[in-house]
Nucleic acid binder design. Structure first.
Lengths: 168, 168
DNA sequence: GCTCAGGTGATAATAACTATCATCCGAGTA
DNA sequence: TACTCGGATGATAGTTATTATCACCTGAGC
């Protein structure tokens, strides 16, 4: 089964395209194009860290010192609703966001919570056929692969972690 | 690719076995077996609803009227740490727990938030081979399939939802 | 039964998020 | 370009889930 991390280059290209006609998509959807919204989607697309609202807030504040944290929360939710962003809440902490709305999944380091994108086209295809979902009709999907990254492994990570376990 | 919902019967059998020697596993792990812990793991195993801390609290309180909500939160975290439970946080609300720690995944209704277990052995096998994970070493995984259940579809669910989208 | 580390209940504190509301401004219209 | 207005924003108060604290209690080995 084909399963691979998404490269930095591909992600950067994606971000550029997405940003280019973000304004047009907003207007088409009946949303005003405000400097705050532009700054927030830009900050989100420029990050590979699947940031939380407070990280976006910190970044955006450099250019818009008067922006409110509430606006950042609200805008991120709005972006999710119109399909310009995606909420990725994993392990036990607060909401994290992703500007990449193409079908893809995530590896998360259980120690440092760093997240990277992965693609598993075969899984997406299997789900799209939605055999086996019974009374449920597919809307979307998100696989979270819990893992330990090299850095954390070298630091000697604990064997205990929050979440599911894999059999030996 | 084989993908199917887990039946109620199989889940019930699993719960019974798991409950039977829970006490032994606790002692082996150096944890005291307290009536509160037993009540909490039992409530969790008897539920298919992937309940939140407050739901467990409500259920357990019937038998232990003096139990504290803090104890429920603490105990659920402890159970996760020792591998007796699993935390399932999805969409945007608070933590939800699952007493089934066998490798499996979840379908969630985006409207009513109802959750059911699914199994995709081929995916688990592919991950276990961890090709494509680069610097990440597999610890576990959890697939959240966002879906609309029959009941909610009949009620006429909104086309907007929080989360990822699938291409058409 | 005795001991004590670890567990519990009560409650205060924290952090993430949401609601409210007065003001502001993007964008369609004249 | 100026006008209008509904949606967007900033400030801030409120809410809710979760965590920390601490005095007391209890399971489990002796």
């Amino acid at each position: 089964m084909n399963l691979h991390l998404v490269s930095e280059g591909r992600r950067a290209g994606y971000a550029a395209t997405r940003l280019k006609d973000f304004a047009a998509r907003c207007r088409r959807g009946g949303l005003a194009v405000t400097p705050q919204r532009l700054a927030i989607i830009r900050a989100l697309l420029e990050s590979r860290e699947h940031p939380r609202a407070d990280a976006i807030f910190a970044k955006v504040r450099k250019l818009h010192p008067h922006i409110s944290l509430a606006t950042v929360h609200r805008t991120l939710e709005t972006l999710c609703e119109i399909g310009e962003a995606r909420k990725v809440t994993m392990l036990h902490d607060s909401a994290r966001y992703d500007g990449n709305v193409m079908p893809h999944h995530h590896v998360v380091c259980v120690k440092c919570r760093r997240i990277r994108d992965i693609e598993i086209p075969e899984l997406d295809r299997a789900l799209a056929g939605h055999a086996g979902l019974g009374e449920f009709r597919l809307v979307g999907s998100s696989l979270e692969v819990l893992a330990l990254c090299d850095k954390c492994r070298k630091k000697g990570a604990s064997a205990r972690y929050l979440g599911s376990r894999q059999p030996d």
